[in-house]
Design a protein around this nucleic acid. Structure first.
Lengths: 198, 198
DNA sequence: TCATTTCTGTAGTGATCGCTAATGAAATGA
DNA sequence: TCATTTCATTAGCGATCACTACAGAAATGA
């Protein structure tokens, strides 16, 4: 594994996790393609050979950044859907927290999974992150469908349509945050979006 | 003006409008930054000096592309809001047509004004197009406000919130289209979004 | 102590970026 | 005809792209 601690030879002189966090911030703010390896090494405080030895290449580093993002800043969505008693309550909480996350002044605005691979020339990178987004839509649809089957939602509920609508709103909120929309404005968008539930 | 016909000297040997349309397609599909001048000259069928003589530089060419887009593929939104009798009817039509436009197989998916400058390193280009988006939100808010004042919408209507919500949905639909959402799926999103109107 | 292993810093690689100098070709007006 | 004007072509500018060969430095086990 890339994260195992070396037992022999000269030890790494930088904090791998701290360097990864710097890379995450940079990719979040500028996107995959617009972030150069020179930008990364400067922000991470290391030289190119150290980056390549520790992370492979730019694409593999971005892959680790995506994983780290999903387990940290992006984990609120999975948590909201898993912890709330119904899909409806989960989506409401997810949208509410998305408004707060996307406008948090402590980190770049918007969602890394949504913005960082827009206009990316690498089909592999673009496709991998797109697949994560589309998988999230399918997972949400399944969650709603299960809730309808269990009688937690009205029989007229359309799981696919609700999932698509929710995805569009979340992704639109991310873009609006990048354009300067405030947390209050996006919380209002989130609350309005919930009114379409049957 | 850049569009006036030359009266003396060797005439231009290519169709400026046709070349501009090719540039529009490329910028629409790949975004501003990921489209290189070499890509552009190949698609436009000209050599770099001809591009620079006719359009200035890459940024100016993109500016003309944006203008052309707003007057062609992007004009449906302004038309919808201007031609329908109420803001509500205008927004409903705009969202419906946005679903069709964003998934039209005859051109790149999504909206050029929304996607082409995401992750762009030029503050001028990014800022100019962001301002167009934000101006559209403000214009929609004013339209709704005027409609409320004229009694065409219920007194409880919140123009700013409705404009933000509509902007988020439109921008989310563009992103979903780029991820492969179908016209029918986005038309359903558009129809659902209208249900939040009072 | 010393060979082995792994990391770090210097200094690049070839490719591509946006852009342009220089020259010749094709039109005009006089 | 012929000077003038404008465009097209070739070729290449310096800067930056992702990435790496190489050598020295710092740890290990024997």
């Amino acid at each position: 594994m890339a994260t195992t601690t070396a037992k022999r030879g000269r030890p790494r002189s930088f904090d791998r996790e701290a360097a990864l966090e710097q890379a995450l911030r940079l990719f979040w703010e500028r996107g995959y393609e617009a972030t150069s390896v020179a930008d990364l090494t400067t922000a991470m405080g290391i030289r190119p050979p150290s980056l390549y030895a520790a992370f492979g290449d730019k694409g593999a580093l971005f892959g680790e950044v995506v994983d780290r993002y999903r387990e940290s800043h992006g984990a609120y969505a999975t948590r909201a859907l898993a912890e709330e008693p119904t899909a409806r309550a989960g989506v409401a909480r997810m949208l509410r927290e998305a408004a707060a996350m996307a406008t948090d002044p402590d980190h770049p605005w918007g969602c890394l999974l949504i913005s960082s691979t827009v206009n990316c020339t690498s089909p592999e990178v673009t496709g991998a992150v797109r697949e994560l987004r589309n998988a999230n839509v399918r997972a949400l649809e399944s969650l709603i469908r299960a809730d309808v089957a269990a009688g937690h939602e009205p029989a007229g509920t359309d799981p696919a349509a609700l999932a698509q609508f929710t995805a569009a709103v979340v992704q639109g909120m991310s873009q609006r945050a990048r354009d300067g929309a405030t947390r209050a404005e996006l919380e209002r968008v989130a609350a309005d979006a919930m009114r379409i539930w049957p």
